[in-house]
């Protein structure tokens, strides 16, 4: 941790990171993972620094994870959600964040339903901006914790076969993972109905597209199921939830097509019986809760490295 080379000012997306940046974050996260296994899980590293969680979309897990990561590093943490903010009173986005800055915020963690909002803020404030999910664009810390989890289980990343199944088109998690995995030499199989595969994605490094689970899962090291939004049937991305489940649920029969030691991941919250069966979600190969736990170490690493950049 001592010789951590600083990242840039912000973490806006995986797109903006280099391979070495990603590896550095994963290394740093490993060190924090040890901290989290101690009796006393708190370190004084960022005492006196202030983090603002600015969430314009409902979120429980990501917000909690950032909040706890900040507290473990002894930061002062303020949570602002859209219902409580001045935005509803007509304040512009930039004014809101400048207010946060006036309170002395060093790091602003932002989630917004519009792609690109974190980028807009980053260009207008001195605080470090961390993208906690913007529209369908990116959710970089989720991809980082996914990679961290995979590497802990598999001991490596390069050359692994990863199937990402479901609504790729509307998934910032999928996009961040695709960029990250492509940079790390992993082979990515995107599996889903053609209606939910975004245009041009097959041209990205490492990506292959499949429409049938049976084709996409064969020999996979990692199967990552995405959450399906029930509302998507209203826009005809698929006819019904039950047909979607029939085609794309991960159950034990389908999991058997993957490698014997394949692991199962899901960014949560899961729809049991729709994209994942309960026996698989709760099974020994499920990493769903490990992902949550690892998310804490990864976010501590990101907060630490960005603070280093500001020091």
């Amino acid at each position: 941790m001592d010789n951590a080379a600083p990242l840039g000012k912000d973490l806006l997306g995986i797109k903006e990171l280099k391979r070495d940046d990603i590896l550095q974050i994963l290394e740093t996260a490993s060190a924090f993972k040890e901290v989290l296994e101690r009796d006393i899980k708190k370190v004084p590293t960022l005492r006196g620094k202030t983090m603002v969680n600015l969430f314009f979309e409902p979120s429980t897990r990501t917000r909690m994870s950032f909040e706890l990561a900040g507290k473990r590093l002894s930061m002062d943490v303020i949570n602002v959600s859209i219902q409580l903010s001045s935005v509803v009173k007509g304040e512009t986005l930039l004014d809101t964040i400048r207010t946060m800055e006036a309170y002395g915020a060093d790091i602003v963690v932002i989630r917004h339903s519009s792609s690109g909002v974190p980028h807009l803020l980053a260009g207008n404030v001195n605080a470090s901006v961390i993208n906690a999910g913007d529209g369908f664009n990116e959710h970089p810390t989720q991809a980082l914790l996914d990679l961290f989890t995979i590497r802990r289980m598999k001991g490596r990343l390069e050359g692994l076969e990863v199937a990402i199944v479901g609504d790729i088109a509307h998934s910032r998690v999928a996009r961040s993972n695709i960029y990250a995995m492509g940079k790390l030499g992993m082979n990515i199989r995107l599996v889903g109905p053609p209606t939910l595969i975004p245009a041009g994605i097959e041209t990205l490094p490492g990506v292959k597209v499949f429409h049938r689970m049976e084709d996409g899962l064969a020999g996979a090291d990692v199967v990552m199921q995405l959450r399906v939004q029930k509302e998507r049937q209203d826009s005809w991305f698929f006819p019904t939830i039950s047909e979607y489940a029939k085609l794309y649920i991960l159950n034990s029969k389908r999991l058997a097509l993957a490698k014997d030691d394949a692991i199962v991941m899901h960014p949560g919250p899961i729809n049991r019986g729709i994209e994942i069966s309960s026996d698989v979600a709760d099974g020994t190969r499920s990493m769903i809760l490990d992902q949550v736990a690892n998310g804490l170490a990864v976010r501590m690493a990101v907060l630490y490295l960005l603070s280093g950049a500001r020091a």
Binding site: T195, H211, S235, P239
Partner: peptide, 13 residues
């Protein structure tokens, strides 16, 4: 037209 687009896409499965 959107529904027809989706039908054509979905039929590729």
């Amino acid at each position: 037209s959107l529904l027809m687009r989706r039908a054509l896409e979905y039929s590729r499965i």
